[in-house]
Design a protein around this nucleic acid. Structure first.
Lengths: 402, 402
DNA sequence: TATATTTAATTTAGACCCTAAAATAAATAC
DNA sequence: GTATTTATTTTAGGGTCTAAATTAAATATA
C-alpha cells in the first residue's frame, strides 16, 4: 500500500518551528510549542528530525542565565552554515549584493556604482552573473550550499515568470532575468519588488504585529508600495506589487517618469521635488533628473530651516500624498500605513499637508481606525527582506532532503 | 485521555462537501470526491454522517437519465427543509425580505416601499423586527429551524460589531442593528455590505471562476464595490467593504452625497447623472435627488438615441469611472473587474470614455492583464448572496448538532 | 548533605482521519 | 447468462497529534 499522507500538518508544523527560530533566534522546545500551538511532544519529534538534517543545533547549556528552579531550558537555534542565499538589490545607479546565512543574518554586503540606465539587456545579464559568481565563491567557503538567489528591484515585476516588466532603473522593459541565472547557478532565483521585501521584514516586527492589513509606502527616487494581508504580500493579477506611486492625484497634472500625467509620484518623489525646487531655489549642481542623496538632503534642509519656497513644494507633495492615501484608505482600508524609504527624510515637511488633504478628501467614517506612521529608513532592509523571503521559499526543499 | 483532535480535516472536508452540494445541486459521491480532492471512502463516511444529521438526502434512483454501463450513481442533495435563513435588503426607499432554504434556494420574497430617510433609529429597529417576525412565522411552517438572519445594506458596515456605520438609505449613523435582532430571534444576525453579497454570488459562478482577484463594482443610486480574494470578500480594517465610490477623481470637484468633493460617485452614480442632466434636458418630474428607475431609464434612453447633451454627461461619468478604475488597477491589480448594479443600464454610454480615461491614466504595463466586463443586473442577487453567506456561516454550528 | 519541589524534555499509549486495496453492488454489453 | 464496467462500502494500515507518564536536571529547604 503506497501510502500518501492526507494531511500536511507535520510539514506545516516543521516550517512553523523554523520560522519561529528565524524570527526569534534561539528558543527552547517548550516555548516553540507555546509559540506555535503544538504540544512539546511534537516539538521534540520535529527537533529530532531537524537536528538529524543538520538544520538546527542545540545551544551549549553553560551560556545561559540562571533560569530559576526546575530543569533548565535547552535552547535550539538554526545552524547558520546549513545554507546561504544571495540577494541582489537593483536600484537606480546602484547594485547591492549581500549574502545571508540560514539563520537569516547578513554575512556579507557590497555596493557597486553602476550606470544602470545605460545597460543593455545583455550587459545587465552579464553583470549580474559576474557579481553573483564572485560572492557565491566566498559564500560557499563557509556554507554548505546556496539555496536561492533573490533579485530585489524597484518597479513592476512578474514574480511568477521571473520577468522584470518595468523598472525606473533600466531603459528597457520585459527582461526575463530569473531563468538564465537559475540555469547558471542551479538554484531558484526569485524576482521580487523591493517594497515587498521591506514590507516582509516590517510585518514580522513586534511593533507592527497585530495589524493584519498593512500598507508600506516607500518614498525615494520613485514611490512604491506593498500591501501585506495576514503577513503575506498581496500580489495582484500579474504578480506585481501595488503601484501606489502611479495612482492619480490630478488628471492631466504633472508629468511622471512613467510618461503619464498626474501620478502621486510626479509630485512627491525625489525627482519631482527636485524638479520643482531647482526652478526657484539655489541647490547643489548635479544630475537634477536623478538627484543624489546629498542634493535631496540640501533641499530637505531648506524646508526644515523655514524656507517658504521649499516648504511650499513639500506641502504640495504632501497634499498629493494625502490624496493618494485617501484612495488607499477608500479602496484598501488598511489597519496601518507605514511610510518609509529614503524619502522619509522629508516626511515631517509633508505630514501636515498630507493629513489636511486626507481630511479634505474623506469623511471620517471612511478614514476609520487606520493609523499612518513613518518608519526610519535602513539601507539594508530591502536585502534583509529578500533574504527572509528566499530562505522561507527554500525551506520546503531543504526538508525533503533535496 | 480526553482526546482533542489536532487536525480539522474532517470538519473542513464536511464543509467542502456541503458547499459543493449548495453550488452544484445533487452530486454523486464519486464526484464529490473528485471535486474536493478526497477519496470516495471518505465521502462515504461524511455522507453517512450528514444523512444521520438529516442535512442531506439520497435522490430516488428512478429519475436519472440512463447513465451508460456500470453501477449508476446515487445522487445526494441538501435537504431544503433542514433549515432556513432570512435576508433583509435595506436600500434607499425599499426593504426586501426573502427566505432561503438550506439548499440556498429562494423560497419567498417580498418588497416594501419605505421612506427610509425619514426613519428614526427606533422606528427602523421596530420595522425590521415586525417584518422579520412575519416572514419567520411562515418560514418555520416548512423548515426545521431558522439558523440565521442577514441584513444586506448599502453603505459602510462593521460586520464584526454588527453596526451600520453609514448608509445613504438612512439619515442617521452608527446604528447597532444586529444585537437586538439576534436577541429577539435567538439566532446569529449578520450585517453585510450589499456589494459583498453580490460579489459572493458572482465569485462562485463558473464564468468567473479562475479569477482569484475579482473586483465587483455596483453602479446605482450610489457606487459600491467588493473585492474578492480567493473567493472570500476582502474586508479592511473596520470590516467594511472597499469604498470605490468615494475614491477620488478630481480634488475639489463635484459635490458628493458624502459631503466631500470629487468622489467617483459624484460623477457616475444615478443621482449625479440626473443632477447634471436636469439642468439641460427635458426629463420626467419627480424627486431628482433620488431618481427612480423610470427617471433613469428616460435619461439613459436619450443617450442611447444620440442626444448629444445626454451623451456628454455619460461620457464625463465614464471618464470619472475610468480614473477610478485606473486607481483600482494601480492599487489592487485585480484579474477581473465586473461592473453591475442597476446602473449598468447606462454602461454602454460610458464605456468608451471609461476606456479612454484608463489608457490616458496608466501605462499599459500597469493595466496588465486585467479584464473589465459588465454583468447584467438581477434584483434578487443581493439577497441570494446574503442567503449563501448566512448558510455558510451556520454550517459549523449545524454540524456540531447545536 | 539529603530530600522535596519545580520545570523541561522524552517516551508511551491511544484517538482520529485519511488513503489504498479489496469486496460488494448494480447496472449494461455481448 | 456471463463478462465488463462503474459506484459505493468495507477493511487494513500509516501518519500525526495529544495527554499522561516518565525521566532528567536544576533549585529550595530541612
Amino acid at each position: 500500500m503506497a501510502y500518501q499522507p492526507h494531511d500536511s500538518s507535520r510539514h506545516d508544523n516543521t516550517l512553523a518551528v523554523i520560522r519561529s527560530l528565524r524570527e526569534q533566534g534561539p528558543v527552547a522546545r517548550v516555548d516553540l510549542g507555546i509559540l506555535n500551538g503544538i504540544s512539546s511532544a511534537t516539538v521534540t519529534s520535529i527537533s529530532a528530525d531537524l537536528l538529524q538534517l543538520g538544520l538546527i543545533t542545540e545551544l551549549p547549556p553553560d551560556v545561559q542565565r540562571p533560569s530559576g528552579r526546575g530543569r533548565p531550558k535547552t535552547l535550539v537555534q538554526l545552524a547558520p552554515e546549513a545554507a546561504c542565499v544571495i540577494c541582489v538589490k537593483l536600484s537606480i545607479n546602484e547594485l547591492q549584493l549581500v549574502v545571508g546565512d540560514y539563520a537569516g543574518q547578513l554575512q556579507h554586503s557590497e555596493h557597486h556604482s553602476v550606470a544602470t540606465l545605460a545597460l543593455t539587456p545583455d550587459a545587465l545579464a552579464a553583470l549580474l552573473e559576474e557579481k553573483i559568481a564572485a560572492v557565491r565563491t566566498t559564500a560557499l567557503a563557509s556554507h554548505r550550499r546556496l539555496v536561492g538567489i533573490c533579485l530585489a528591484v524597484q518597479g513592476v515585476v512578474s514574480s511568477h515568470s521571473g520577468t522584470l516588466i518595468w523598472s525606473p532603473a533600466l531603459s528597457f522593459r520585459n527582461a526575463p532575468l530569473s531563468a538564465p541565472l537559475a540555469d547558471r547557478f542551479d538554484c531558484p532565483v526569485l524576482l521580487e519588488n523591493d517594497a515587498n521585501c521591506i514590507a516582509s521584514v516590517l510585518a514580522t516586527k513586534p511593533a507592527y504585529a497585530g495589524y493584519p492589513n498593512l500598507a508600506v509606502i516607500m518614498l525615494g527616487y520613485g514611490i512604491g508600495m506593498s500591501v501585506m494581508i495576514d503577513g503575506v504580500p498581496f500580489l495582484g493579477a500579474n504578480g506585481s506589487a501595488a503601484e501606489f506611486g502611479h495612482s492619480k492625484y490630478q488628471p492631466g497634472g504633472a508629468l511622471c517618469a512613467c510618461g503619464k500625467r498626474g501620478c502621486i509620484e510626479a509630485y512627491a518623489s525625489d525627482y519631482a521635488l527636485y524638479r520643482e525646487a531647482r526652478e526657484v531655489l539655489e541647490l547643489p549642481a548635479g544630475d537634477s533628473a536623478h538627484p543624489s542623496e546629498q542634493q535631496m538632503q540640501a533641499l530637505t534642509q531648506l524646508a526644515m530651516q523655514g524656507n517658504p519656497e521649499a516648504q511650499r513644494i513639500f506641502a504640495e507633495a504632501g497634499r498629493a500624498l494625502g490624496y493618494g492615501m485617501a484612495n488607499l484608505l477608500a479602496l484598501f482600508n488598511p489597519d496601518l500605513v507605514l511610510v518609509t524609504g529614503s524619502g522619509v527624510r522629508g516626511y515631517a515637511a509633508m505630514q501636515e499637508a498630507m493629513q489636511d488633504a486626507i481630511d479634505e478628501a474623506l469623511v471620517s467614517e471612511l478614514i476609520g481606525p487606520t493609523r499612518i506612521v513613518s518608519c526610519p529608513w535602513d539601507r539594508d532592509m530591502t536585502c534583509l527582506g529578500g533574504i527572509a523571503i528566499t530562505l522561507q521559499a527554500s525551506d520546503s526543499s531543504l526538508l525533503s532532503g533535496r
